[in-house]
Simulated scan of single mutants.
Amino acid sequence: MTDLAIRVEGLRRSFGDLDVLKGVDFGVRRGEIFALLGSNGAGKTTVVRICATLLRPDGGTVRVGGFDPVTQAGRVRESISLTGQFAAVDAMLTGRENLVLIARLRGVADPGKAAADLLDRFRLTDAADRRAGTYSGGMTRRLDIAMSLVGSPAVIFLDEPTTGLDPEARIEVWRTVKELADGGTTILLTTQYLDEAEQLADRIAILHGGRIIADGTLADLKRLFPPAKVEYVEKQPSLEEIFLAIVGKS
């Protein structure tokens, strides 16, 4: 259990008479991408908010980086970053100014250098001095994730990061998430897009009815079903493949 960056046991949370989390259990290993799947209202964001110190649980235990988000909230916040469903980018500032602002708030020694390094890492250098309000959806989300990396947090929570993005922008975000994990960052990703979890996740958990009903690798989850019937059919390209081929981004 010492290799777990996030450990959740028996997590419960209600809102009035509505029991959203009824005993959630899972663990996320250091340096892995862990996808939490569930339909709208399943409680994915509630789990993230509890782990990120934004909401108190009614019961159960949570540890993030070994710390309790309730009694050691300050220690947890020092080691995490949260990117929500809506970008926290200031549209009136340039990309560089957004990053410098966050770096100063986090007490980074050289905010300008930190901003320049992240702009280069996220392929935003050419747009660094343009107002963020002129960025495309994919560029805005990349900047948002770059802002969450200021100060090199060990754990990043991505709460439905590609909601509302077009296919090209989604693939841009996927590439960025994979690069973060390759660099050793632990990522808890919530999504309702099954293809997103399939593309990104080292392990997948399904939240339904207030509990985790399945947890494992994609191969583990596939073994829960009977062997597929083998048929020989002509494979047709998906709409996403057609779209990307037409615009030259395949």
Rank of each mutant, 00 (worst) to 15 (best):
T162I: 08
I33K: 14
G84I: 02
L124I: 06
T53Y: 11
A181T: 12
D25T: 08
V100N: 00
K22C: 09
N40A: 02
F225I: 13
G112M: 06
M92E: 11
D68K: 06
G16K: 03
V70Y: 14
G27S: 12
L200I: 14
T163L: 09
L165I: 15
A245N: 12
Q72C: 05
G10H: 11
A205F: 03
P237M: 00
R170T: 03
G74Y: 05
V89L: 02
L119W: 00
G38V: 12
D202T: 09
T46S: 03
R30V: 14
A127Q: 05
V108Y: 13
G164T: 02
A115W: 01
I204D: 06
A87T: 15
E198A: 15
V89N: 12
D220Q: 00
T140E: 08
G112H: 01
A88Q: 13
L149C: 10
G216V: 02
S39Q: 14
G164A: 06
Q85K: 09
D202H: 15
V150W: 03
D215L: 12
L101I: 09
G38H: 04
G59L: 05
E172M: 03
H208F: 15
Y193G: 07
G23L: 09
L11S: 02
S39D: 10
R96Y: 11
I242Q: 12
A197Q: 00
E160N: 01
R49Q: 11
T140I: 08
V24P: 02
Y135N: 11
T185W: 02
D25Q: 07
G66Y: 04
A103C: 14
P69V: 14
A214I: 08
G31Q: 10
P153F: 09
T163A: 14
T140H: 08
T186L: 07
R56F: 12
R49M: 13
T190Q: 03
E78A: 15
S148M: 03
R131A: 13
I102K: 07
D220N: 00
T94M: 07
M147F: 11
E160R: 04
R203Q: 01
A88D: 10
G66P: 07
G95E: 14
D159Y: 01
L54V: 01
I246F: 11
E172G: 02
D220S: 00
Y135Q: 11
A91H: 13
E241K: 08
A114P: 12
E198T: 13
F225D: 00
A201M: 06
G138Y: 03
L4V: 12
G84H: 05
E168N: 05
G137Y: 07
R223K: 15
N40P: 05
V76G: 00
D117C: 03
K113T: 07
T134A: 14
L82W: 05
K113E: 10
T45R: 00
D117T: 08
R49N: 15
R141E: 00
C51A: 02
K235W: 07
P161M: 10
R123S: 15
T45M: 14
D126C: 04
F67Y: 15
V173F: 02
E172W: 08
A146R: 11
C51S: 04
D215G: 07
G164Y: 06
R12Y: 08
L218G: 08
R121N: 09
L11A: 10
I156A: 04
D144Q: 06
M139K: 06
L118E: 02
L4M: 15
D129A: 14
K249W: 11
A201K: 04
A91C: 12
P167W: 01
L149G: 06
V48P: 01
A214R: 02
